[in-house]
Nucleic acid binder design. Sequence first.
DNA 1: ATTCCACCGGAATAGCGGGATA
DNA 2: TATCCCGCTATTCCGGTGGAAT
Length: 340
Amino acid sequence: MIVDDRVLREDFVPSEVVHRHDEVNLLSETLEPLLYGERPEPAFCFGPTGVGKTCIARYTLEQLRAQDPEVRVAYVNCWQEYTRFRVLYAVLEAIDRTMDVHRSTPKDELFGRLEAADDRPIVVVLDEVDQLEETAALYDLYRLGHVSLVLIANREDELFAGLDDRVRSRLRAGTRVRFERYGTDELAAILETRASNALEPDVVTDAQLRRIADAASGDARVGIGILRSAARRAQREGLGTITDSVLEAAIPDAQTAIRRKTLEGLIEHQRVLYDVIAEAGEIEPGDLYAAYERRVEEPKTRRTLRNYLTKMVHYDLIEAVGKRRGRSYRIVDEDVDRDG
DNA sequence: ATTCCACCGGAATAGCGGGATA
DNA sequence: TATCCCGCTATTCCGGTGGAAT
């Protein structure tokens, strides 16, 4: 049933894009100066999750490298690499200059090495750049003449709000590529091409693909996750095709899979906080801290708990309603409808 | 209207861990 | 081995704020 499961993986970059030609064109036009040995202005990809920002950035850069293999590409996800050190390290790693780099190397050494690696241009893709905590890293990279930036984020206003003035003014001139949410037809078409490459013929019907697209409400990541989960279920049960009942069972699967994954990433103390909130449904900070302190043998400081909580809000595991004194925390709903 | 105070979150600091260096 | 260096996490300190109490 499954012919090639790589096609259904999260990080798969298709050889042909569907429904995003304008975005690809705009991005590659922006980066075109690289082909003439010039430095392009920064490029931005804005849009909600699952609309193909990362995918299109990778695709476009692969195309560019096909035209000029001298160009080096460093892809950095700022969820994981959120400090200046880690970002610079990740870029050096991508261009193979991490020899002898360790935590105790002097601060400016990383920058110095990057500066020295100016024999060939580097395109640095900073994905989820709004998660970057030390925006000095942006300034560092911008200062380097042989480095070009592609910045990916959800919302333009939120991204710029988090930057300091120096960085903001320099990046203001960049090109914006905006990604709109997929409609059901568009997403069904994307799923169709994925299915035809990943699965045996006629494993899934057009009506089922539309059902998936509808359930994913425009989020390609979720849609592909449902398709993958359905195909695996069907295969496990020894079926020749994806039946409707298998498909319906796969839908909640895929939606909770991401949440389960992020929950696994939490440390023990954070999970206790999560459990307390989950059990209460909604809880005020004072009660939350007290319940946590009762449940744990060596409780962390309340300030630390606040750091945990803001992180968990970032991860979309919980939400905080209200500000300061009237605040309370609750588990974020299972079926969030996006973009209120 | 005014005061109170629970809570948030920024900034500075301490302590830990791990790799380098001598 | 002892010591230095540095990134990272947790802690300490504290100013600000807006809902609650008076």
